[in-house]
Amino acid sequence: MSLPTIFIDGDQGTTGLQIHDRLRDRADLQLLTLAAAERKEPRRRAEAINACDIAILCLPDAAAREAVGFIRNPGVRVIDASSAHRTHPEWVYGFPEMAQGHAQRIAQARRVTNPGCYPTGAIALLRPLVEAGLLPREYPATVYATSGYSGGGRAAVDAHESGDVPTVAPSQVYGLALEHKHTPEIQGYAGLAHRPFFVPAYGAYRQGIVLTAPLELRLLASDVDGARLQACLARHYANARHVKVMSLAETKAMTYLDPQALNGTNDLQLGVFVNADHGQVLLSAVFDNLGKGASGAAVQNLELMLNA
């Protein structure tokens, strides 16, 4: 029996390189690669994608759509790490822990769209609370997140690490037009009725994300408090290998969140910070934007699809 063939289209970008590093020593699959001179040649890309069992697209959105258009072999399955298909109804959203039975949907899918890095944390925090009725769908959600500069892709990494550019600010808030492409993804998969207020930033470090979402208890039902919110998240992720929900005792003892704490892993750490006197709760997510936020998630989805 032949080994499954995996083709990474865009294996020289930040996400593609990370996926290649995670897969290159595997003895249970075969990586199909193109020579440097062929990587942008449409004919060779089309041949490669139709010769594989599973294609992983690590491309800009337009190029990812082009790659899907190349497919003529009905047996080819796809994991798209771009944002081209994230809200497409015919693609399965690649966040296995999002809902009960969702990992099985990914395992059986022909087309899987990898989640965005920021949406991974936001949806992980908000969706279970919305589904449980603890957070109203109409809640005016706000999400603030800081990522390492690798979230900007290969060009951003080169710019920060080449030494040829002026020193960047310790933190740079962007998306000031309030049109960030991840916002519809967060709204749709979190189950929110209205567009959330999303404020992203890049920090002067390579990788890792801290994401927070503040909640006002006065805007929730009178019987909802921090303990119920934490318990809901803990129940939802009780059997999730890659997601840990901190206890209230753990969050109470913390004085800061380190965005780099889970770098190099595919793990996601969620927290609920409570100030009952002020009626305020802060939801938090910490994870690696190149791990659970990109390449790690793609490999997790690949494992599900290979073992279906």
Rank of each mutant, 00 (worst) to 15 (best):
L217H: 03
G133M: 12
L135G: 06
P200T: 02
C117H: 10
Y144M: 12
P214E: 12
V210Y: 00
F198N: 02
F197Y: 03
T167H: 13
A156V: 05
Y174N: 02
G191Y: 03
P140D: 13
E185M: 01
V143E: 00
A124S: 15
R218Y: 06
E161G: 09
I186M: 09
P119R: 10
P115E: 12
Y144C: 12
F198W: 07
T113L: 03
A193N: 08
A124E: 07
P214A: 13
P200G: 01
L125S: 11
R111D: 05
A156F: 07
L126C: 14
L215Y: 08
D223Q: 13
A204H: 03
Y139W: 10
G153E: 03
V210F: 00
E179H: 08
S147P: 04
R111S: 07
S162Q: 06
Y189G: 01
I186E: 01
T146F: 01
P115W: 08
P140T: 12
Y139F: 15
I209M: 05
E216F: 05
G148Q: 01
G121V: 13
A190K: 03
R154E: 14
G151W: 04
Y144A: 15
Y149V: 11
G133S: 10
L129E: 14
R127H: 14
G188Y: 14
H182C: 13
Y144E: 09
Q187C: 06
L215C: 11
H180Q: 04
Q207H: 05
Y189V: 03
G203S: 07
H180C: 02
V165Y: 15
D158L: 15
F198T: 11
F197D: 11
N114S: 09
A145F: 00
P166F: 12
A169G: 02
G175K: 07
E185S: 01
T212I: 07
P119N: 10
V210A: 09
G151S: 09
A156P: 01
A132V: 12
R111K: 12
R206G: 06
L176H: 06
H194C: 09
G151Q: 06
V168Q: 15
V168H: 15
G163R: 08
R195I: 01
G151C: 10
A145Q: 01
P119H: 08
L211G: 02
R127E: 14
A141F: 09
T146M: 06
V157E: 13
